[in-house]
Design a protein around this nucleic acid. Structure first.
Length: 799
RNA sequence: GCGGGUAUGGUGGAAUAGGCAGACACAAGAGACUUAAAAUCUCUCGGGGGCGACCCCGUGCCGGUUCAAGUCCGGCUACCCGCACCA
């Protein structure tokens, strides 16, 4: 058969769609497989080859599972709220709804042209009112359960445009639009109390099947640390300064304290501070610093000593100075630290610069040069002297602190509460009403969805407000509680909202009573296998695990964890080995490949290009190689015979075994390599039986389904090969009669011999010793040891 | 700085569990077919040496364990990706 991809791909895509063969059924008696890929943001640029690699992996797994008789749910949708559509709307004066619909349509056509076996009857769109109704519903449930609060946050703000900017739009501390300096502005924003779920999110990791590096990344992101809170008295004032430390056992080495520039202590005791002007100036300087300067520029420690406030070390009564410095953050711990310069490098640098005492309390380092953070014997530390084990000394100190009521064991997380807001139009409106009498009042559930109002102008509002704030008819409303005049919240939700629960909606996408039917969730959840990019392993996955765990706790969903298994594909790099980017001009458009080589070639190539989890550069020549492979597969119809071809039996069974397990292990490259090797063997053999060819095509079908369907049909087979039964192998038929084993003398390979598979060692040694290439190396030597690894190797150790 | 990952021919990459390094492709070279080119088919293809059967070296670097190391252990180097003054 000649390989005419243009003709056959359109033909089979239409047949699949007409027959709806990839529709998941809600037949709860069947074994199920829920395969999930990260739904795309439907950008105007269309699909990227990265999407192809991400989707084809689970596509292959899903197709195989379907052939194995599973009821497969392999859905797709669109994460369509977000800035690009909004910016484009501003530029072209078109409604983002229109743009989004166009992009979704375009994207869908592109996805269909690759032949994915998605269930198109379950498409979700996060910007659809029927979808975001439930996003708002979950938000209100969280509000009800005290997980939503408002607090101040520093936001990127452009004073010239009077607009809040995202990190992306304020890179390098300059406004992307007018290029003036971006400042940090304090603003009241919405937060979700994700830190309350930190321990549950950590515990949940023990029950799921994620690769160890992904688990570790999530653990580090949550960043649990144990230590102690300690109260330091302030001399002459009835006030405690509370700090957090992971090393309470170093308390005797404390020589000063540092508080964050924003710490409330300053304002509270402003009248006691002698150098208030200097401190205020330092504070202002810190506020001006952008995120970029704070984190990217390695710099000297700066700070100012607070005159008039002195702290007292609670363990020895020593009076110590208090500084403010920007190396201490308000957002972690209590915003204040006890400084132990002998054993913390940052404190050491600060003490050196400001000429503060350095007291050694742990032996083992040279504290005149740098801080010593290792283990060692405790000294200069009263009752802790002589301790050599960190764990013991910390435990003892915590006991002392608790007995005296000046400290307690504590836990801290690096993870911060989730700032949950955007001052933009194209997002889910936050369904809260501000009533002057009742405070924050939720929009009643029956009024959901709280729809985005129609507006003409999507430009952000002034002074950091959302565009919605300009709409009087939207803002002014009555309080659902007291009926008085009230104002609506005008912030919208961030991008991450819809993607935090979208996988639940696929289960029951048209339900009007609930986010999904309970019975259906009990059948389909959890997601059996979730594939996506490494970049979403922390934020998106942690956010969605948090939402899901919350929904579990309030009885809405049936599993504590949403994803039973997670995998991640590696990046597709440009042909030059660099990350693909428009500015570098190394972007490959997958649709060009579909046009020039066909969807089957594209699919096969992205699966063949290398280790699925690793980054790999694009190679046009290698694409051609995959096309050549498929052409040779098409040519097999000319080698097909009615006769049996037993000479291919072992090779075929080996290949079934290899392809079956490789797909499960996501070793797609070696699965394809083994099919190529078998193809070479078939050509060498000159013929293949009809039966064996049918089996071969079934193995290839998940990768190149259009070609396999066409050949299946031309062979006169019934139905779709996509629904045919996945081949089984016979273990006994995967072993050869004889096997070539290596013969080593003193560990060096000297020859190979053929022996019966699994033969005993006497036979192996005898055969090996008789080998003419081995003989010269044994002659005149004393045989010290003989090693035999069945079916692998013989090694003679001689002297 | 902290955490994670990677390193194998000219290239992408193979190598259950410590057991014949380089599967499968790509590129390159030679040949066949062709008026010619493309396509296709056949052969060569890690480096060095030898007329030759063959021999020596070789998985980022240094050392170790072992009959045997790409694989295990100790110590480096380079690059990539997260997080980043986390007390």
């Amino acid at each position: 058969m000649k390989y005419q991809y243009k003709k056959i791909e359109k033909k089979w895509q239409k047949k699949w769609e007409d027959a709806q063969i990839f529709k998941a059924s809600d037949d709860f008696t069947k074994k199920k497989f829920y395969g999930l890929v990260e739904f795309p943001y439907p950008s105007g640029a269309g699909m990227h080859v990265g999407h192809i690699k991400a989707y084809t992996g689970l596509e292959v797994v899903s197709r195989k599972r379907r052939m194995q008789g599973y009821n497969v749910l392999f859905p797709i949708g669109f994460d369509a709220f977000g800035l690009p559509a909004e910016n484009y709307a501003i530029k072209t004066k078109t409604h983002p709804r229109v743009i989004t619909d166009q992009n979704i349509h375009h994207f869908s056509e592109q996805l269909k042209s690759v032949g994915y076996s998605f269930d198109w009857s379950r498409v979700v769109d996060t910007t659809d009112e029927d979808f975001y109704r439930w996003t708002q519903w979950i938000f209100l449930k969280m509000f009800e359960h005290g997980l939503v609060f408002r607090d101040k946050a520093l936001v990127n703000y452009c004073p010239s445009c009077k607009v809040v900017l995202s990190n992306e739009d304020s890179q390098g501390g300059k406004c992307d639009i007018c290029h003036s300096d971006v400042i940090q502005k304090s603003k009241d924003v919405w937060y979700l109390r994700i830190t309350q779920y930190a321990d549950k999110l950590l515990e949940g990791l023990e029950t799921v099947d994620y690769p160890p590096n992904i688990k570790l990344q999530q653990q580090n992101w949550i960043g649990r640390s144990t230590g102690a809170f300690v109260d330091f008295a302030i001399d002459g004032i009835d006030e405690k300064l509370e700090i957090y430390t992971t090393r309470p056992d170093t308390l005797f080495g404390v020589t000063f304290m540092v508080i964050a520039p924003e710490h409330p202590l300053i304002d509270k005791y402003a009248d006691k501070i002698g150098n208030l002007d200097e401190i205020k100036a330092y504070r202002a300087e810190c506020a001006k610093k952008s995120e970029f300067e704070r984190t990217q520029l390695v710099k000297d420690k700066t700070g100012v000593k607070i005159d008039g406030l002195t702290a007292v070390n609670p363990v020895n009564g020593v009076k110590i100075p208090i500084f403010i410095a920007d190396y201490v953050m308000m957002g972690y711990g209590t915003g204040a630290i006890m400084a132990v310069p002998a054993h913390d490098q940052r404190d050491f640098e600060f003490a050196t610069k400001f000429g503060i005492d350095i007291i050694e309390v742990i032996k083992g380092g040279d504290i005149t040069k740098e801080a010593y953070t290792g283990d060692g014997e405790m000294i200069n530390s009263g009752y802790l002297n002589g301790y050599t084990n960190k764990k013991d000394s910390i435990a003892r100190m915590i006991r002392e602190l608790e007995a005296r009521g000046i400290g307690r064991a504590g836990v801290q997380y690096k993870m911060k509460d989730w700032a949950f807001n955007r001052q933009r139009y194209w997002g889910e409106p936050i369904p809260i009403i501000h009533c002057p009498k009742c405070g924050m009042v939720p929009v009643p559930y029956e009024e959901l969805p709280l729809k985005l109002p129609e507006v003409e102008n999507f430009e952000p509002g002034t002074d950091g407000e959302s565009p919605l704030a300009k709409l009087d008819y939207f803002v002014h409303c009555t309080c659902p509680k007291c009926g008085g005049a009230a104002k609506r919240e005008t912030d919208t939700m961030p991008q991450w909202a819809g993607s935090s629960w979208y996988f639940l909606r696929y289960i029951d996408p048209h339900n009007t009573e609930a986010l999904a039917d309970r019975k259906k969730m009990e059948y389909w959840m959890p997601v059996d296998w979730y594939n996506g990019g490494m970049e979403h392993v922390t934020r998106h996955m942690i956010y969605s695990r948090f939402w899901h765990r919350f929904l579990y706790d309030i009885g809405v969903v049936n599993t504590p964890e949403p994803y039973a298994k997670r995998s991640a594909q590696g990046l597709v790099l440009g042909p030059d080995g660099d990350k693909m980017s428009k500015s570098k001009g190394n972007v490959v458009d997958p649709l060009d490949i579909v046009d020039d080589y066909g969807a089957d070639t594209l699919r096969t190539y992205v699966m063949f290009m290398g280790d699925y989890g690793a980054a790999a550069p694009w190679n046009d020549n290698s694409v051609k190689g995959c096309k050549r492979f498929l052409e040779r597969v098409a040519g097999l119809t000319d080698l097909m015979t009615k006769d049996a071809t037993p000479e291919l039996e072992t090779k075929l069974h080996k290949t079934i075994k290899k392809v079956s397990s490789d797909i499960e292990d996501m070793k797609f490259n070696t699965a394809i390599a083994s099919m190529m090797a078998l193809l070479n063997d078939i050509y060498d053999n000159g013929k293949i039986s009809e039966e064996y060819l049918a089996t071969y095509l079934k193995l290839l079908c998940p990768f190149a389904p259009h070609l396999c369907e066409e050949m299946w049909e031309s062979m006169g087979r019934e139905g779709f090969i996509s629904l045919a039964e996945w081949p089984e192998y016979d273990e006994a038929k995967t072993v050869d009669q004889t096997v070539e084993i290596g013969v080593q003398v003193n560990g060096k390979l000297r020859g190979t011999v053929a022996v019966p598979t699994g033969c005993d060692k006497e036979t192996a040694f005898e055969t090996a010793k008789a080998n003419e290439k081995v003989v010269p190396f044994l002659e005149g030597k004393t045989l010290v040891k003989e090693i035999y690894v069945p079916n692998k190797i013989v090694n003679f150790v001689v002297r």
